[in-house]
Design a protein around this nucleic acid. Structure first.
Lengths: 338, 338
DNA sequence: GCCTGGCACTCTTCCCACGCGAGTGCCAGC
DNA sequence: GCTGGCACTCGCGTGGGAAGAGTGCCAGGC
């Protein structure tokens, strides 16, 4: 177990390194933080911390920098979440309140997060799995062609074209629309398949084929759209990444373009609070020199999607976590209102 | 006027520089292109080209690189558009045909363009201005709350919530829906305001307020959504930009995040064919060291949106122009089919 | 008049050696 | 267990020198 002072030394190293971006030495540490001990003592502590794997030196005779393990300890034990100041909170709220629709909410959230944290922001669209159906609309475009529009309680709209096996009258369509909505409106997506199973039986034999087609398209839409979308922003902040540029930044940009990777990344965070994944804790290789700070957000008590930021492992964790948490909270509020 | 051979020298310089990314000297030129003259002669030609501003030397005693003006001449006079090969065309078609909806078409197009050109791809969503209304749907969510869904002929769907000044019965709503659609279905967005102007008069006085509210929301949607959206991809390709990294790449990333900037950029290209804007020809400062190759695409004869790529001025213009043109053509086909 | 070979000149780039300074590890003493 | 001192290690920046690529110009030839 590390002594109290050694933990303080680690904390000081993390803070200084995050601030200066340069390896920090024993002398500088004692000057900037009054630890009440001499550089020599600090050197001993540093040697111990290095033995334990919390810090490392880039080369002999350079200062120390935190390792992933060091950051992990810092995040878990040494640092809290820095709350936003009142003016900051007001600014967040104001900025988000101007949104006109769901797309706009997401877009604004991305911009806001990127600006607040000066890092790359990632916001997942509210997921359909946990959503409920607000309304299903059916429109006849041609005798044997129907457009299906699905509207969710988070304001999301999906549409699909359905080619029917047989012509389908307006009356039947209205009937189907009414029955369908009375069954699924307000229900969870996951419950829909069960609820509509026997629906074709209520129709004339000649219409059953069409009804089945429409229903299976609806079910497909529910499933398919679980490939959730997301929006990213603030990639320009990657340029503040470090000195050894192209090599670091390229894999990150590539990872960011692979939505699948990002979705998996966000999905892995099960913690109800703010989750931090540091460096090699990220499964994806391209993100091994980045940390991901994420949190769920939702319109009610339940999280319907995640948002977060991607930045260098050398980041201001307390501040970033605070910003991410605050933004998630306010987005939730906005969603609940609309 | 430049002699034929000098133009050939310029062409050779552009080609070599694009290939090697290094200033090209007279000796190397004569070796790689059989111009039939000696290096000394080429040197004279180069001096002349430099006087005219087509090429420049980074330092005394280095080779020459093309200037923006040089690239411009190259694009206008010296190079054609390199058509895609048959296998490439097939690959494009196959890749785009798998798309399930409009979002997917745009997403696939972006990926495809980025991959083909190895540059940053930008695709504008089909614009609403030139689109026509396919259907307007009205859904009653609560006695005084209506959801308006607008469906366009390009498959785009927009929805808005409307808070009505007074409760609005299902019958009135159905009436409004029917009247509205009979007037605007199949019509251009720009014509809609005129077509619905007198619609409230057909309703009972107590409903007129609500009808007006719904109509004005519809009109707002038509206008607002002209703030067209776009999708970008392939930003990882920016890392192949050059050596003097952070300084070059940062403003480009910033510009790419400003959708307004990009939309303006695409909007400026009036040419019906492929448009190339080179370096300082781009109004936005951050893009002064990039070239933008863009073209309109559309489902019919008419262009409904633009797509293009952003890359270093030192790019393979014929190949890029060919790829952009081909992709635009196939996207147009896909849109027309759906 | 235009092309050519030759030549001197200019710069950049690479390499290496050197010295400085930051930072370390260790040790003896308190 | 903390402290001051001391020798040691490296990385980094500097400066000089050599190499190489490329140029501009000039005089001669077709």
């Amino acid at each position: 177990m590390l002594s109290e002072r050694r933990l303080q030394v680690l904390r000081a190293i993390v803070q200084d390194y995050v601030g200066t971006e340069e390896p920090v030495g024993s002398k500088a540490l004692t000057e900037r933080h009054n630890l009440g001990v001499s550089p020599a003592t600090v050197r001993n502590d540093m040697a111990a911390l290095e033995d334990e794997g919390y810090i490392a030196q880039p080369h002999t005779s350079a200062g120390r920098i935190p390792t992933d393990k060091g950051y992990r300890l810092f995040v878990d034990k040494l640092a809290g979440v820095k709350p936003m100041t009142a003016p900051e909170r007001r600014a967040i709220q104001n900025f988000l309140e101007g949104a006109v629709d769901l797309d706009d909410v997401v877009a604004r959230t991305v911009r806001l997060l990127a600006q607040l944290t000066r890092q790359v922001a990632v916001v997942q669209y509210p997921s359909l799995t946990r959503s409920t159906v607000r309304h299903v609309e059916l429109l006849s475009l041609a005798p044997a062609r129907v457009m299906l529009v699905l509207i969710t309680d988070t304001g999301r709209v999906e549409q699909r074209m359905v080619d029917c096996p047989a012509p389908f009258g307006e009356a039947s369509l209205a009937d189907l629309r009414a029955r369908l909505n009375s069954r699924v409106a307000g229900r969870r997506f996951t419950d829909v398949p069960m609820l509509v199973e026997d629906l074709p039986d209520a129709f004339e034999p000649e219409d059953r084929g069409t009804v089945s087609t429409v229903l299976s398209t609806l079910l497909e839409t529910l499933v398919e759209e679980n490939e959730e979308r997301l929006m990213i922003g603030g990639t320009a902040n990657l340029t503040r990444f470090g000195h050894d540029f192209p090599l670091t930044i390229r894999p990150v940009l590539e990872a960011l373009e692979e939505q699948v990777v990002l979705l998996k990344l966000l999905g892995e965070a099960k913690d109800p609070g703010v989750t931090v994944r540091i460096g090699h804790e990220n499964a994806h290789e391209g993100l091994n020199s980045t940390s991901v700070v994420s949190v769920g957000y939702g319109s009610g008590g339940e999280a319907v999607a995640k948002l977060g930021v991607v930045g260098p492992t050398r980041m201001d964790y307390p501040g970033t976590m605070g910003a991410v948490r605050a933004v998630a909270r306010y987005v939730g509020q906005i969603l609940a209102e609309s």
